[in-house]
Nucleic acid binder design. Sequence first.
RNA 1: GGGCUCGUAGCUCAGAAAGGUAGAGCAGCGGGCUUUUAACCCGUCGGUCGCGGGUUCAAAUCCCGUCGAGCCCGCCA
Length: 565
Amino acid sequence: MEKPQRILGSSPVTGCGGRDRGVDDHSSRVEMHWSQAIAREIIAHRGEEKHVVATGITPSGDIHIGNLREIIIGDAVRNALCELGVEARLIYVGDTFDPLRRRYPFLPPEYEEHVGKPLSEIPDPEGCHSSYAEHFLSPFIESLDELGIEVEVFRADVMYKSGWYEAEIREALLRRDDLARILHESSGRRLPPHWSPFAPLCSACGRISTTTVTGYKLDGGEGEGKGKGEVYYRCECGNRGTASLSGGGKLAWRVDWAARWKILGVTVEPFGKDHAAPGGSFDSGKRIAEEIYNFRAPYPIPFEHILLRLSEVEGGDTGDEGGKRRRRVTAMSSSRGTNIPVREILEVVPPEILKYLIRRVRPERHIEFDPSMPLLHLIDEYERDTGGIGTGIAARIPFRHFLTLVQVARGDDTRELLAVIRRSGYEVPEDAEEELAAIRRKARYALNWLRRYAPDELKFELLRSLSESELVKELSDAQRRALLMIAHHIRHEHELGGGKRLSATEWHNKIYEVANALDIEPGEVFRAVYIALLGKPSGPRAGWLLASLDTEFLRERFEAAAAGK
RNA sequence: GGGCUCGUAGCUCAGAAAGGUAGAGCAGCGGGCUUUUAACCCGUCGGUCGCGGGUUCAAAUCCCGUCGAGCCCGCCA
């Protein structure tokens, strides 16, 4: 087992490869990414030559970044296994056959009648997909594509309807008493006398949670899993009926989980720590797998939840870290509205950031996700580590600078944005469609982040007219003189230099030049410039701001502000 | 009540699987052309590793206890 060790074995693209070198000279141990350590564990404790890493979720609401952790962990471990030369697949099971447990706040009142029906059999509340389950599942699957995670997707309702579960359902029915005992022993849960591991789907009302099994007949099958069978039930709605083993109902959760391991050949499974506690579902699933299904339970990878941290600055414009922030840390919960759907966060940050966020923290530690400044810091860090988000020019312009650019351009109108980018010193070729697309994409992220999560001190808006700001009236005489002088300089240099533009540095120097000439504090001039342009006394680096604006506009604006109009 | 996981610099996290004098990034501070403000570069400050015991020549790392945070066992996936 003498494989060369790597530092954080992962592709540079995914963002974890950037841990710097130079530290490892004297250390005998090499830092290893947690996914590598886990992969080694798996190989050391398991004999399988092919691994199936399974993850999944019940698509009963928006799938949020908390849920994303599971699949990203699965992806990381699968990749680590592959790097160690073991064959491994990643699969994702949508629990589309689970019943709707209650009418969530985001559902209309008429959905009350769907409570208890399998998600795959309920209409899409927004009418855009084939079912309730698909409505939440398919956008998530698309997100996985954006994340570059290769995964095989299974849908529970399809698996049931196709008869994949038949043998396991038979076995469960036959060993009902053993199952009840195991569940009792592992969780302390006392099951009602009429409990059945199989919940039939009522043919009359369509519910799966209101039926009681009254009997069953299993045709003698030749060999394992060959026999058909039927289950008799009565429902709270008054109906009595017969259910088939292929889609006529589903196994109880903890039994279902174990059955699925066997059906799909699962060898590794990450899951939230709530399942991991003793007496939790993994405990019973493990016993059920081993005692009922003769299948070795997968290697468990319990992980902590992602908590949402919302920080609000008290008392307005305080500095970044200095201000007193009120912090609120909450678990993500769809029903309480404290979650951020994956599809929403993907409008704000590129997927690789989410991957980066999750991969850098070991699974057993919780992650506090704060979409405001900390998210921006994370993006900065990622860009430093990997050479930037996007390709070409877009990658060379830091995300932070994009925040200024899109605000100067007042949006993501491509023409205006490109003009601003060019003025601030980047050559953007006219015809490079790919470059332009990357720029637009990054601009879109910047804009959305500003709108949704940026603190006020990072936002600014170019005044369309000076009358929009009260502060303009309060400019001192000295400040007015300074602005006028800048305007004169612009006129002068523009004419002499034949349209020559000042660079950011030159602009910066110009401000000091003017301050010296008029013998006033540079800070006064800075404030005057910001007020004349933004209507507030501070802003992004003045040199860059000025350089990215149209010269003629600047001259007129400064003259007007100097005149106090 | 029983149990599980986590608690390392102001912040976000490595380091724990094989005990060997505490690491990174951000923030802070100081510079980078005489020149505070929101892209960059360099330097620098910063931790009794929650606390208390124990094992050991040696403990962030192993063991016991304790405090704090979150979670599970009860409904149900």
